[in-house]
Amino acid sequence: MSTVRIGYAPWGETLEEVADAARRAEAAGAKVIWVPELHRSATVTAAAVAAATTTARVGTAIALAFTRSPMVTALEAMDLDELADGRFVLGLGSGVQRLNEDWHHARWGKPVAHLDETVRAIRTFVAECTTGEPIELDGAHEPMRIRGYQRPYAVRRPAIPVYLAAMGPAMTRLAGRVGDGWISHELCSPAYLEKRILPELETGLEQAGRARTELDVVVSACCSVDDDAATARRRVAATVGFYASVRTYAEFFAFHGLAAQQEQVREAFRGGRGADHLADAVDDTMVDCLTLAGDPDAVAGRLAAYEGLADSVKLSPPTHGIDAAQTRAAQDSIIALVATLTGGHA
């Protein structure tokens, strides 16, 4: 039996549909329900999911770390943990500079050090906010000086798990040093995890004197399941194209021997195609290497390739370049596969 836990990132055109998908994924056997932050607030969506579920953990994957103050993030995390009866996981990520500064008017600074201080401030506040004692934290990015404050409500847990999203080496080492878990980019092959990510996580763990068992390694996997493998691949091709259009992912694609294929996608992008409409420029080699796409047996086999490398795999349906009906069909097929793999109920 596989030791890799399966999580799921539900999709919906409404919060009601997201909650329903979360409920069905939990019944199918998903151990964690993860919610993103881009088109919705991660914390509000997590609240909807927490109310709709009873056993699965509820996590943000990810909430933006710098667009809220650490105190607000901590308050929201404690409220969510209360709502979820101790099932909440706070997944944080830095985002990119332009998103922080131009979209949110948030400070960027040095993101690794900034995120390190953010995690420290959140954990300190959660642990000490009911004592009435002053909180004094120095820092270049997130100092915290709180006096005359005492939270009058009980804290469900004095330490809420904090997972960090990371792709670059320095941020990945930080996840190993201070995170309760690490969350991958949406595209993360077993080979990339083994050769590029795990060594950096191990370095971070060693720097902090921590054991590998203290870190939950969570791979994010864009998934598409259909009895017709070609249909499954085409659903997810635009997601691959979306990321291939970004020049900063050149090393990632080159690692997989896909530099020429990425350049083909980028040529289409430079020719005027939108980033969500590059599926025709993506060949099956890219899809098979970077996603879990195909018929149920093929997807189960690709999922098994993470055995011994990842602790958890977060499955998500494709959303780029396809309509809602196709995403909905992909979601239903993933939940059915989860039930088959875990013995749950679809």
Rank of each mutant, 00 (worst) to 15 (best):
F255L: 08
V236E: 09
A27Y: 07
T340V: 13
R5N: 10
I146R: 03
A208Q: 07
L83D: 03
A229S: 15
Y243A: 11
D288V: 09
T124R: 05
A221P: 04
R234L: 02
L341M: 12
T231H: 10
Y243N: 00
T67E: 08
A166D: 03
R247N: 15
R328Y: 05
S220Y: 15
L205H: 01
A304F: 13
V126Y: 00
A260M: 10
P158L: 11
T291F: 03
T53D: 08
D288P: 07
A244L: 01
E202M: 05
D85K: 13
G204N: 02
E267P: 01
A310G: 08
A46Q: 08
F125C: 02
A293I: 03
A166S: 11
Y163P: 04
T45E: 12
G59N: 08
M78Q: 11
R196I: 10
V112G: 05
F255D: 00
G59W: 05
G271H: 10
V218Y: 02
G86C: 10
H105M: 13
L201S: 07
P158A: 13
V338F: 09
I183N: 01
M78D: 07
L164S: 04
P70R: 01
Y8A: 02
V4R: 05
G272K: 02
F269I: 01
G181D: 06
A175Q: 03
V313E: 06
V89C: 04
T291E: 10
L99P: 06
L90T: 00
E117K: 00
L198A: 10
A48C: 14
Y249M: 02
T231S: 13
F88M: 03
A208T: 10
P161A: 09
Q326A: 14
Q326R: 15
A51M: 13
T203E: 13
L315Y: 00
D295F: 09
I33M: 06
G274D: 14
P36C: 07
I33A: 08
M167F: 15
P134K: 12
H114L: 04
T285I: 12
A22K: 06
A140S: 14
E142G: 08
R107S: 13
A229G: 00
P36H: 08
P152E: 04
G308F: 03
P134Q: 03
T285N: 07
T45K: 03
A175F: 05
V178M: 11
R24W: 04
V162N: 01
Y192L: 05
W34L: 04
K195L: 11
L337M: 06
R234I: 05
